[in-house]
């Protein structure tokens, strides 16, 4: 099934999403990495995360932009974990030459529409960055609005929508389907 996971940072989303992806099916297990490393700290993080995931049997696909291209690099019958929409948007919106693509959200939504037509089992992770007490500059607001647009699109399309709050789980959509999958987890 198609599962959308969001919530605040550092509360167990990614770990939870890994469990769900593994439980989904017995075929190939893919980790779609969207983060583009910018410094040595990122490099170290990637090495660490990759080592963690290898024990789970994940094959890693690096896809920082043009998300639909993972269809050419994988068996679409497999189980996918995409982490995260947040990084994907940053890469698509803030381009290496310093310019800004204001239509990045449309491009990503188009990519996901192709993806979700072809992939049955996927867990997509995003970040809930909408509840802090800051009036941001217009560019940051554009980024937040764009991410929310993609989140809402994915929440509509996915079978299950989950919010993770400090390792607790709120099921916003598809509780029945989720419970079936969860039984295989515990």
């Amino acid at each position: 099934m198609r599962i959308f996971v969001s919530g605040g940072c550092k509360n167990g989303k990614s770990f939870y999403a890994q469990h769900l992806a593994k439980a989904q099916n017995m075929g190939f297990l893919y980790y779609v990495a969207t983060m583009k490393p910018v410094d040595s700290e990122d490099d170290e993080r990637i090495v660490r995360h990759r080592a963690e995931r290898e024990n789970w049997g994940f094959l890693t696909i690096e896809q920082p932009v043009c998300i639909e291209e993972i269809l050419n690099k994988s068996d679409s019958r497999g189980s996918f974990l995409l982490d995260s929409v947040t990084a994907l948007l940053a890469n698509e919106m803030f381009l290496p030459d310093g310019s800004v693509n204001e239509n990045a959200a449309d491009k990503i939504i188009n990519g996901f529409s192709q993806l979700l037509k072809n992939i049955e089992d996927i867990v997509i992770v995003s970040d809930y960055i909408y509840s802090d007490a800051v009036i941001y500059d217009p560019l940051t607001e554009k980024y937040r609005e764009s991410l929310a647009g993609i989140d809402k699109y994915l929440a509509k399309l996915c079978d299950v929508v989950i919010e993770v709050a400090f390792t607790n789980v709120i099921i916003h959509k598809g509780g029945g389907k989720f419970n079936e999958l969860y039984k295989t987890l515990s």
Binding site: G8, Y128, Y130, S131, D132, A133, V134
Partner: peptide, 22 residues
């Protein structure tokens, strides 16, 4: 109403007050 209660405590005193009052 926007929920603005879940971020880092703002450095700015007015923003802190806003967050608590809201």
């Amino acid at each position: 109403c926007d929920d603005i209660s879940c971020g880092v405590v703002p450095v700015d005193a007015a923003a802190r007050k806003w967050r608590e009052e809201l």
